[in-house]
Amino acid sequence: MAEAVDADEPSDAGGLTVGQVSARLGVTVRALHHWDEIGLARPSSRTAAGYRLYGAGDLERLHRVVVYRELGLDLDAIRAVLDDSTADVPGALRAQRAQVDERIERLQRLGTGLDRMIEAHERGLLLTVEQQAALFGPDWDPRWPAQARRRYGDTAQWRQYVERAASRGPEEWGAVADAVTALDRALGEAMDAGVAPGSAEANALAERHREVFASYFPLTRGMQVCLGRMYASDPGFAAHYDGVRVGLAAWFRRVVDANARAHGIDPDTATWS
């Protein structure tokens, strides 16, 4: 209870109380008590009732403690600076400066990352129109990312997508585009070769599609069934796959459905989950 009163007890004469010092230096009473207890900054006297009183010299030392603490030095380093005549003060300050520079650099990287994440949430794709055309081909419509945001922007999959998009530049998106192109080519060749839905080769292609699609967001087999339906029914997607091979969209839907059945999923009741 005495410590609680210590902060507000008025001084008799010749010094300031803990509460007065706290207000003057902008530090907490708890901090002043702690510095006293560890011998870092002790009051030079006490009142008759045992309350701390800080004199001019005490205040000067406390001021120096506050200055070095605000510069980021820990209490042991501050003690050395104040009490050790052999301490390398410039060296300690240079080391602290190096740590500050590292923190500034980390914060700048964090700021850049936050800017990219915000932009990815708003735009969906952090590429210029020219970069998109170069990477995704002449059939790519740069309006598609904005349309996807309007349609799916409140879904978990959109958030997963933009988290990936925020860290990608043209080179990374180029690798994704190459993987998609290679998969389309493999699907067309498999269809030409008469690969039957439900066969081991067809199932492997369905799993490869899931792996490639994971570049955008994780894709369950049930969600893949829903995509297969859309590939076959949506005019834009159907035109893409049928542009690779006539009938490819319908064939790939059968491949996906058969692979889902092999994993205990009924394609007729599969949902986006």
Rank of each mutant, 00 (worst) to 15 (best):
A4G: 03
V5D: 10
A7K: 07
D8L: 10
P10W: 09
D12T: 12
D12K: 06
D12L: 10
A13P: 00
G15Y: 06
G15P: 06
T17K: 00
G19Q: 06
G19C: 06
Q20H: 04
Q20D: 11
S22C: 03
R24A: 15
L25T: 01
G26K: 08
G26R: 07
G26V: 06
L32G: 01
H34N: 06
W35Q: 01
I38D: 01
I38N: 01
G39V: 07
A41S: 12
A48E: 13
L53R: 15
G55A: 11
E60V: 13
R61K: 11
H63N: 12
R64P: 01
V65D: 02
V67A: 13
V67Y: 12
Y68N: 03
R69L: 05
D74W: 06
L75Q: 06
L75P: 00
A77R: 07
I78Q: 00
I78Y: 01
D84C: 07
T86W: 05
T86Y: 03
A87G: 03
D88A: 09
V89I: 14
G91C: 10
A92D: 09
L93R: 13
A95P: 05
A98Q: 15
V100G: 10
I104W: 09
R106M: 14
L107E: 13
L107C: 10
L110P: 00
T112A: 14
G113V: 05
M117F: 08
M117L: 15
I118V: 13
E119C: 03
E119G: 03
E119P: 00
H121F: 04
E122M: 04
E122I: 00
L126R: 09
L126N: 05
L127N: 08
E130C: 09
E130R: 14
Q132D: 05
L135G: 04
F136E: 00
P138L: 04
D141Q: 08
D141P: 08
A146M: 07
R159H: 13
E163A: 15
A166L: 05
R168G: 02
E171H: 10
W173A: 07
A177M: 09
A177L: 08
V180Y: 02
A182Q: 12
L183P: 05
L183T: 08
A186H: 02
L187M: 15
D192Q: 11
D192E: 15
A193R: 15
A193Y: 10
A193D: 15
G194R: 11
G198D: 12
N203M: 09
A204F: 08
H209E: 11
H209R: 04
E211L: 10
V212G: 11
F213Y: 14
A214F: 08
S215R: 08
F217Y: 15
P218D: 14
M223T: 12
Q224E: 14
V225S: 03
C226H: 01
L227H: 06
G228E: 00
R229Q: 07
M230K: 00
M230H: 09
Y231P: 00
Y231Q: 00
F237V: 01
V244N: 01
R245T: 05
G247Q: 11
G247S: 12
L248C: 05
W251K: 04
R253T: 07
V255C: 13
D257N: 14
D257Y: 01
A260I: 03
I265F: 02
W272R: 09
W272L: 12
S273K: 04
